[in-house]
Write a protein that binds this DNA or RNA. Structure first.
Lengths: 187, 187, 187, 187
DNA sequence: AACTAATCGAGACGGTACGTCCGGTCTTGCA
DNA sequence: TGCAAGACCGGACGTACCGTCTCGATTAGTT
């Protein structure tokens, strides 16, 4: 066996990556810079992360600690909370810088694409399915709708606001929650 | 004065760029490869496009030839057509490869960000405003709603489906048109 | 027929070349810079000079207007005058910058090498032969020695002083004249 | 600390440079070609040599391993040996190709000029001073003459023969040794 | 006086090399 | 075996220069 890995090194890498992402964006991020700021060697990074993308992924898409959405008692409330969670995630400085870059890079790497999908999309859809199930149980919805479509309706506008329009998503959660809940029930 | 630029060179650059984007994606795109395929010198590229990003932008975001959306007679019809136009644009091979990369790179360049916003977002929003104005005139809507929000509702789910979920947007236009029209009128 | 060449353009090219050679050396000389300073187009240069090297050659090795060396009445005097002429040529700002560069470039071009040899070496050797013939006629020398060797003895130390040692050749003509004259007669 | 430089890489660079100089001359020498032939990356070259010129210098002006000239017992013998050493150096394929190019390029770079002077001129002059000192000790010379001048007399004709006249320096050492020795003692 | 043909300044063209920068791998010596 | 330091290969970047070419506008000599 030999010497065990130093967990302080793990953390130093992720912290340095987040800092540099916030300061210089995804394009300006270099592995050498991460190593220098973390005061470690490059080998220590590549021992943990196979590529730069995986390192960024690990640092910025804090894997899936999205908690199961609390039961607020109504579909509207539940949706609003979930949208707000997505907004919060997407507007953290590191994630805001990393996500578009990752979205671009994963198109060349099915392996990373799957990883990203699992940690990001699948988690959100799981929460969504849970929430929709509750609405069905409550009688707010006759049957659970297509999760992919609802996810697109919920996550899409957040992305469009932040990454396309480059605007702040303040107040978006409430408005979007109302619209989606209305679309699911009313129509 | 002096020798005028050769418009066949302009076109050769854009065509080569589109071809290589479709074949190898954004990450695999090389300025040297574009020059070689277009059978031109790199200088001819950099004389027209300050950076690789601007070249890709010019090639893939075929600036704004989005026509004013035809009047189909109803808000639902108009919206469906507009969504379909966005879907078509976003699923063309070159654009599909280029847009996520550009979205990532523009975060480091306000200049390119503004360019992208103008050619992409502003154009779509103009069409949208036109279309909403017609609905107001028809009496389908009491007053024109927030264009940013409607744009996010319209473009966001397309992006989420294609780039986040990595799924085909077949049939999305109809479903999304119905949902957004319903949200605007019904609720 | 057609429009005749403008001789002011000829001169402007050579003047600009000499100026830029004096200011920036051979390595820093560009054809574009010559055109700009001369306020002419590049085509006007290439209509007159096939390559940059030939342009420099024409500008800095003012072809062969080395006059036949005057008869000073003695081998020593004649040699001193000839050495001084070489020194003067080699220390003019443009020539000083151009000659090493040309010497380097002609090694890849037999055509230019021959041109340079004719305009530079052959001219000096002709003067030398003339001068040695007079010395034989005077009885100072029994027979005319190997011109190549004497030329190397005369021109070589000038080159070594200026280009190898990078020193001023002040006073070199007298000392070198004496040494070579001594070597030819005494030994 | 860190990984030490690989001395095989050093040698591979210099060997490749010498080979390419001999084959294609100074003008045809490319840093990429050196890297390819040496089977190394360009970075490994630029880590060692700041510019292409310095690389060529290191490869072709094999720094100064000119040994102190052996004592042949006479000024004539010593001079002949020293001239022959200069001839040998200057006619090695790599050096013959490199020296004129370097002589041209150093005129734009005082730093490289100083380097070249030290490795080439100073070394030859040191050998010369040694040799002249011995002649004084032997009583062949009354006092040691100006080293710059003697150096110009010794190295200059070699350069003139090889680079100006573009002739082979065969037999030059004996003839030049005799002439210079004669000039120093006889006159 | 009109036509012809070569010139002019300006600057775009293809090609090639430069020196820099990064990603991912490998190699030191120390702990 | 892990670690910091840093060298290694490969390959793209954006710049610069060469020699050629194409514009529209002159400027002679020829009809």
């Amino acid at each position: 066996m030999g010497r065990p890995r130093d967990s302080r090194v793990d953390e130093a890498i992720l912290t340095a990556t987040r800092g540099l992402l916030a300061e210089g964006g995804y394009a300006g991020l270099t592995v050498d810079a991460v190593a220098e700021r973390a005061r470690i060697g490059k080998a220590a990074i590549y021992r943990r992360h196979a590529t730069k993308q995986e390192m960024v992924f690990a640092a910025a898409v804090h894997s899936a600690d999205l908690p199961p959405p609390p039961d607020t008692g109504s579909l509207l409330g539940d949706l609003t909370v979930l949208v707000q969670e997505i907004v919060d995630h997407v507007t953290s400085p590191a994630a805001a810088a990393a996500i578009p870059g990752l979205l671009a890079d994963i198109r060349s790497s099915p392996e990373l694409a799957a990883r990203f999908h699992n940690a990001f999309v699948t988690v959100q859809q799981a929460g969504l399915a849970e929430l929709l199930g509750r609405a069905v149980a409550r009688g707010e919805l006759p049957s659970s709708p297509d999760v992919d479509l609802v996810h697109a309706l919920v996550a899409g506008p957040v992305f469009a606001t932040v990454y396309l329009q480059n605007r702040s998503p303040d107040g978006l959660a409430e408005r979007l929650g109302r619209i989606v809940a209305g679309a699911l029930t009313g129509a």
